[in-house]
Structures are given as structure tokens and as C-alpha cells.
């Protein structure tokens, strides 16, 4: 297997359950040693994609090659090269953390001494040395995810699938998980990450694909995606409705929120246009309480690409 060969390729991947089409022909190419993020709302088809690529279910059409092996033709060779941490905790709750890791080591046929060594290393690495002697049912959500990921790593996989690895975690555990992912990539593994958090994709991924109703609607680096949105906006806050009204009259094309007393003015980020804006507000002698400049984030990109109103289950934290 040459190093130039991508870790994951998918061509025209399709999946339907009866009449219901979940994946409608997706193409993916993930180079080795990179983080690829599949971003989408619940029900977009993220988990289905992971299940197909990790040999849990078969595709209805198309082909996928993971770590150099066809997922349909040679699933066992794929399984030997991958690690999967699914959306739902895949630890044995009645076993201790250490026993869970040793179970994985035994299933990877590492041998007794090497298996115990590997388990001890991972407990250390994931800050679970103390917890390792307790049954997993007593673990917090963050500890459980760490154990889950540690179990995935026992066999030293080349390609790791992380399906919504931080869903339901508190901010501190989430950042801890991000650091773990960065360390793994530094060690040379390829990570295929699904998330519904734009911030997470922005933080971690080399490339991002936006999945919407089983189709990839955009793909690129975070910056490339952000560049697709022409500009950001300036947010103006007012103390009085009166000021908001006169500012809205003076500026024309704005979006307003009368309850929060603020205005969003489209803005290209240049100093010149900011000065022009301030001049116009000055000219109308409006009292502005505060002003902030917002460059486009993936949130804007996502909403622009998918036309997905906020009330759907897209979360940005």
C-alpha cells in the first residue's frame, strides 16, 4: 500500500432503507494523516456514512475503499485497519475500565503481557488510571467517551471513525476530546469525524464536507467554505427604540431585532466601509450603545448552503 493512496475513498455511495433514501450518491476522498469532517444536521446521513465505511452495513450502490481495501469485498481487512467510536457508548458497563481495555487487547490477540501493557498505557494517556479499577457504569459522560476512544485505540488503527464524539459532553470534556484528536493526527492516523457542531469542524478538520439530505452540498477547507459567503456583518446595539428606528431609516438595508434593540448591517470587513457606516450614523445623529464587527463563521456558511432555518436541529455552540 503506497502512502499516496488516500485513506478513504467513496464513489457514488448510496443507501436506502426501503423507499427512504438516506444517502443519495456521495463522493469522498480523505488523504492519509488528515482529519476529515462530515458536517450535517441530525438525519442528514452522517451516521449511515460511518456505518457503511466501517463495514457495519452494506451500501445500496457505489463503492468505498478504506485503508486500501474494498468495504464490500474484504470487510475483515478493513476491520483490521480501522477503529470506530460510535455515537452511542460502546463500553461494557459491567466491566472496569481496565477490563474493557484488556478485553479489546485480547480480541486483537496482543498476548497477555503486551495487552496489559497497552491497557496501562492507554489508562495513563486518557487520564483514567484511578477510574480504571471501577466499573464503567460509574463513569461520567466525559470519562465514558475517553474510555470508549481508548478502547478504539487498543489495536493501533490507521483510520479512526468518530461519530459525533463530543455530543452531550460539557465544554471542558469537549476541549479535552479535541486535544486527543489533535494528538492522534500528529501521530499519523487518519480521522473521519462527523459532527453537528460547526465550531468543532472548524477547530479540527483539514477538510469539511457539508451533508444535507444525503448529498454533499459543499466541500473544502474551513476557509474555502467561509469565502463562499461574501461578507460578515456589523452588529449595532441601541439603548432606545427611538435610536434604533432612526438608525434603520438612515442605513436602509438592514435586518432588525426590535426586542433586543439591535441591527445587523451587511459588511465586507473593510475599514473604509466601516468608516462610511459610522459617518452615516453620525450624520443622522443616532446614539449607538455598542458596535461589533462579525466576520463570517461556518454558521453563516452552513445556513447559506443548506438554507436551513435555525429552528431545525442544527446546533452551533
Amino acid at each position: 500500500m503506497t502512502t499516496s493512496q488516500p485513506a478513504i475513498t467513496a464513489t457514488g455511495l448510496r443507501k436506502s432503507f426501503g423507499e427512504h433514501v438516506v444517502l443519495d450518491g456521495i463522493d469522498l476522498r480523505v488523504p492519509r494523516g488528515t482529519v476529515f469532517s462530515l458536517l450535517g444536521a441530525n438525519g442528514a446521513g452522517k451516521t449511515t456514512t460511518v456505518k457503511i465505511l466501517s463495514t457495519l452495513i452494506g451500501a445500496t450502490g457505489g463503492a468505498a475503499v478504506v485503508a486500501g481495501h474494498d468495504v464490500a469485498a474484504d470487510p475483515d481487512a478493513v476491520r483490521a485497519a480501522i477503529g470506530v467510536t460510535g455515537q452511542f457508548s460502546a463500553v461494557d458497563n459491567l466491566l472496569t475500565g481496565q477490563e474493557n481495555l484488556i478485553l479489546m487487547a485480547d480480541l486483537h490477540h496482543l498476548g497477555r503481557a503486551a495487552g496489559r501493557r497497552r491497557a496501562a498505557e492507554l489508562l495513563e494517556q486518557f487520564d483514567l488510571v484511578e477510574a480504571g479499577k471501577k466499573t464503567a457504569s460509574t463513569y461520567s459522560g466525559g470519562m465514558r467517551r475517553r474510555l470508549d476512544l481508548a478502547m478504539t485505540l487498543v489495536g493501533s488503527p490507521q483510520v479512526i471513525f468518530l461519530d459525533e464524539p463530543t455530543t452531550g459532553l460539557d465544554p471542558r470534556s469537549r476541549r479535552g476530546m479535541w486535544q486527543i484528536v489533535r494528538d492522534l493526527v500528529a501521530g499519523g492516523v487518519t480521522i473521519f469525524l462527523t459532527t453537528q457542531y460547526l465550531e468543532e469542524a472548524d477547530e479540527l478538520a483539514d477538510r469539511i464536507a457539508v451533508l444535507e439530505h444525503g448529498r454533499i452540498v459543499a466541500e473544502g477547507t474551513a476557509d474555502e467554505l467561509k469565502r463562499r459567503i461574501p461578507g460578515g456583518h456589523v452588529l449595532l446595539r441601541f439603548a432606545e427604540v427611538r435610536d434604533l428606528e432612526s438608525a434603520a431609516r438612515a442605513l436602509g438595508q438592514v435586518s432588525r431585532d426590535s426586542e433586543a434593540l439591535d441591527l445587523r448591517v451587511p459588511h465586507d470587513g473593510s475599514l473604509r466601509s466601516l468608516k462610511a457606516l459610522l459617518d452615516r450614523l453620525d450624520g443622522a445623529s443616532v446614539e449607538v450603545d455598542s458596535l461589533s464587527v462579525h466576520t463570517p463563521d461556518l454558521d453563516d456558511v452552513f445556513l447559506a448552503l443548506t438554507g436551513n432555518p435555525k429552528n431545525e436541529k442544527v446546533t452551533s455552540r
Binding site: 475483515d76 470506530v84 460510535g86 461494557d92 480480541l107
Partner: peptide, 13 residues
């Protein structure tokens, strides 16, 4: 009902 069996299914065992 627990996720661990899906883990077993993605392993070469």
C-alpha cells in the same frame, strides 16, 4: 441494546 456489540462487529474477530 448496548453499543458494544456494534464495536465487536467493526473488529476483525
Amino acid at each position: 441494546t448496548e453499543g458494544i456489540v456494534d464495536r465487536f462487529r467493526t473488529m476483525a474477530i
